[in-house]
Design a protein around this nucleic acid. Sequence first.
RNA 1: CGGGGAGUACCUCAGUCUGGUAGAGGGGCGCCUUUGGGAGGCGCAGGUCGCAGGUUCGAAUCCUGUCUCCCCGACCA
Length: 591
Amino acid sequence: MYQSHLPVTTLREEPADAEVPSHALMARAGFLQKLVSGVYVYGPMLWRVIRRIETIVREEHDRAGCVEMLMPALQPMELWVESGRWDRYVQDGILFHFRDRKGSEMCLGPTHEEVVTDYARRMIQSWRQLPVTVYQIQTKFRDEIRPRFGLMRGREFLMKDAYSFDADEEGMRESYSRMREVYKNVFHRCGLRFTIVHADSGSIGGSTSEEFMVDAVTGEDAIAVCEETGYSANVETARFRIPNPPPEVEERPMRREATPGAKSCEQLRELFPEVPLEQMVKTVLYHVTWPDREGLVAVLIRGDREVNEVKLANHLLALKVELADEDEIRRVTGAEPGFAGPIGLPEEVRVVADGSVQGVCGFLCGANVTDEHLLDVWFGRDLPEPEIADLGMVQEGDLTPDGKGVIRITRGIEVGHVFQLGTKYSDAMNAVYTSRNGHQRPLWMGCYGIGVSRIAAAAIEQNHDEHGMIWPLPIAPYAVHVVELKSGGKDPAEDLLASRIHDELEARGVDVLWDDRGNVSPGVKFKDADLIGIPLRIVVGRDAHEGKVEWSLRTDPRDKETIPWEEAVERAVAACREAGRLGAPRTPVPV
RNA sequence: CGGGGAGUACCUCAGUCUGGUAGAGGGGCGCCUUUGGGAGGCGCAGGUCGCAGGUUCGAAUCCUGUCUCCCCGACCA
């Protein structure tokens, strides 16, 4: 490939709206161009990266016996009503939907459980057809609340989604673990460092789910990990043990104290230095939306802990939980926000307690009166024992659920998510098969997603320096960058050698980008090469007349060797063979 | 949706407070010079100042409305 054929202008300055390295570098290098918020043009170089990723994804899925197909992005409302997800997706605003000319409601697919279940219920009739796993690589549409970080969270993005169908639960588990291995292979082959974590299954549904997180400080997700025990989970779902138990105290009668202006636990610590945070109980009021109604829920949690809203929503079987607004708080507590407590709340407010309050005795809490708190409050004496559930957010330093290790919080980019769906969709949409003994049985499903375009961004987040991107060889846009310093007829020896290397590499199945641009100074060529980050570099320069070139790796720019051009070609071929990206030999067509 | 900020050339931005000829740097084009780390000189092209109203002799600048984009929170591959 001749670099002079690329319609690309590189930028010296970062675009103003780029917040993370992957976005800034891709924009500067012309990989990417924003059309509107969360929607991007993929330039020629980025498209090559994506095709590399797709190739790896396809090879690994096909190897595991999955079958590729393609489903429509345009979908009818009826299927979504049938599965029961239309209202939730519309209410969350995540769905792009509209009416067609006949007035039928349609949407652009944010995911494909409905379509694939509809496909399966018609195609799969017999146990003899099971198990089967289908997949597709396709554009998805989600009207994200906040598109961000370039390719990391777009409103239109490329996703590989796969769906497994089994005769029973055990089969589903087997399919799931097979896909889990496929995912590990895919991400390893893409050259990514990642962590597999327990996850919440969210709006997709189902029981077990795990996420594949690329380790990166700019990741949007926080994850709880423990090196000693191997425990790892998204903080949304992480279970843990609290390391610091509440103090034991002797029983005293409940009393009421004036606490003017003290709305936070920190302020109360100053008023009552003898009461540690572990002996305070916070009452957090939530406005909860269920499928059929809305209401308020009070969550009791220890003073040093935070509520995990994902766990809360799951526990309450709610569509949505959000902090109650100030007027709601005043209405049910009769007090200003900051003084809510568990005693004396109206009947309509359901009270649930996080496990962290278990064993907390003689505690401090709000009095439901402005500027007053209660002290020496006992469960079972001053108020009923509450309904206990795991509603707490994990914190750095907590213990793993088995108590054997310490949890650390790190960050990751979610590039894959695997779910055991069970029969959620097959029940809702009546997708059944005839079993060996003639019964109608629901299909057991799993679903599996990979953010194909997001992988490209994640790879840069994980691999870049101050000069530019550093692509892992398996997914780099080109394997080799031939940087010719004086091109365009100014030095016939260089032109001849560079074109010879270019042709030879292509003939050997190595994809190569040749910087043949004339009238571009060497400094610019080096800067552009660093920015684009092609992993193997052959510089054709001052030693060209002796048939020698400079060989270097983008990962280690200082380590340069001057070697005969034939050896550089051999090294490139060997590296590509090892990385599994040797392609079909190409014979250049005269241009 | 709530809270904050910004829309001026392909990019990064000044100019807006205090109304009066549309600016810089980068990038692009031409010529000269230069050629192993974003070289230098001369010249050229490129803008309905987001959009619509209003105030005014006169609006990028003041007023009203509206759209878009970005950041902070709830979504997710």
